[in-house]
């Protein structure tokens, strides 16, 4: 027991800034320590979300990059084991070129090459994550990083589509309100009657209320 104090790794733990994580975590967390993760993502909020998800799961060596133009330099200096990037990010082609053309012995490969775990691959695709890992890195070592990232990307994707839906709903309401206003003025009817008229017309033509409202607003704009 006395020897433990002199143990090199013990000393290392004590001075490591990641000490809290290491002390509270399981053995897995200790193993995670030396995986270096780079995130390429321009949106600061999304970056923060991914970093905190990874940090909570025990990875602390995480760096984020908004601009692909600095990537070459960053990759050479930081030497990441894993690079995470949104599947739909147009910078992927640039990232691939840099990762594959880099002269370091740590050559990156696209994660999807390893299709041994098809469920994971499809989950990543559906969540919109693409990852590049250093060639030769064992799947079991990166699997939990990916699972964390996939979970996080899924939430972000869902939030985005909810946000888009909310925006659309707001836009639609404005259009319907304008259409109602036009009908109320032109036909001298109440708001409720205007809406009923829109709905009846839509049903009669087998269209949506919003489509009829759109047509009305466009026509009114043309005639005004």
């Amino acid at each position: 027991m006395l020897n433990l104090a002199a143990d090199k790794s013990f000393a290392l733990f004590r001075v490591s800034p990641a000490i809290d994580v290491l002390m509270t975590g399981s053995n897995d967390v200790v193993m995670n320590r030396d995986l270096r993760i780079l995130i390429v993502e321009p949106d600061p909020e999304r970056v923060q979300g991914i970093i905190s998800a990874l940090t909570e799961a025990g990875w602390t060596d995480v760096k984020a990059l908004a601009q692909i133009s600095a990537l070459d330099r960053t990759v050479k200096k930081f030497v990441p084991d894993i690079v995470l990037i949104d599947l739909s990010n147009p910078d992927r082609d640039t990232l691939e070129h840099i990762s594959f053309a880099s002269e370091t012995s740590k050559r990156a490969v696209a994660l999807f090459v390893d299709q041994t775990d098809d469920a994971l691959t499809q989950a990543a695709l559906n969540a919109g994550v693409s990852a590049y890992v250093v060639d030769g890195l064992k799947m079991e070592r990166i699997k939990s990083v990916l699972e964390t990232a996939i979970a996080r990307f899924k939430i972000m994707r869902q939030m985005q589509s909810e946000l888009d839906a909310a925006k659309q709903a707001l836009e639609d309401r404005k259009t319907i309100d304008r259409a109602k206003g036009i009908l109320m003025r032109q036909r001298n009817i109440s708001e409720d009657d205007a809406y009923t008229l829109l709905r009846k017309t839509a049903m009669g033509q087998n269209r949506k209320v919003i489509d009829v409202a759109h047509a009305l607003v466009t026509a009114a704009d043309l005639l005004s």
């Binding site: 739909s88 990010n89 147009p90 992927r92 696209a110 299709q115 695709l125």
Partner: peptide
């Protein structure tokens, strides 16, 4: 498709 890499992945993985 947003990039050639994405197009390639989607084709190769059957999407």
């Amino acid at each position: 498709q947003p990039s050639w890499s994405a197009l390639r992945d989607m084709l190769a993985l059957g999407h």
